[in-house]
Nucleic acid binder design. Structure first.
Length: 143
DNA sequence: TAGGCCATCTGGTCCT
DNA sequence: AGGACCAGATGGCCTA
């Protein structure tokens, strides 16, 4: 559990509009707000759990630095596209050997994938495209 | 100390 | 009516 807003508590908002209501309505509104806050916390925790799972299957910079949410999504996108490219090329080369496929998948292993992370491109589209091109040019294998 | 990242609260909107 | 989802606001923590 990290920081929380100092000025806001689980008691919910205390606007003048609420103050003008009857105590029963105020209590109901407060209870609903607290429940909504709890649901939102739980929802965001679920989302963060999903991000953690995604971080585990996506190539990392290193063991020390945790990818941010944005970086995780970017890496997942380029990783998926790299794998997709391999499958597409596999079909194009007519049922490649197991050895060829192993060689291709080695290229997208975490330890060799960090070189694909680029942040100096203006758009994500360009970033992904250039990353995949870079990866492939460097490891092209002809069946 | 500024900037990045994040957790939390909150009100609005949509759906069941 | 109530829950899910979303985006904006806010403040804490961390690092260069």
């Amino acid at each position: 559990m990290k920081s929380r807003r100092a000025s806001c508590t689980d008691s919910g908002s205390e606007s003048s509009e609420l103050d003008s209501r009857s105590p029963e309505k105020y209590e109901t509104a407060t209870r609903r707000r607290m429940a909504a806050n709890a649901r939102e916390r739980k929802r965001m925790q679920g989302l963060n759990t999903a991000f953690d799972l995604l971080r585990k299957v996506v190539p990392q910079w290193g063991q020390d630095k945790k990818l941010s949410k944005y970086e995780t999504l970017q890496m997942a996108l380029s990783y998926i596209m790299a794998l997709n490219r391999i499958l597409t090329d596999a079909r194009r080369h007519n049922a490649p050997s197991r050895q060829w496929l192993d060689l291709q998948f080695d290229v997208v292993q975490p330890e060799s994938y960090s070189c694909l992370m680029r942040y100096d491109h203006p758009t994500e589209q360009e970033y992904v495209h250039s990353s995949l091109s870079y990866q492939y040019d460097g490891h092209q294998v002809h069946a």
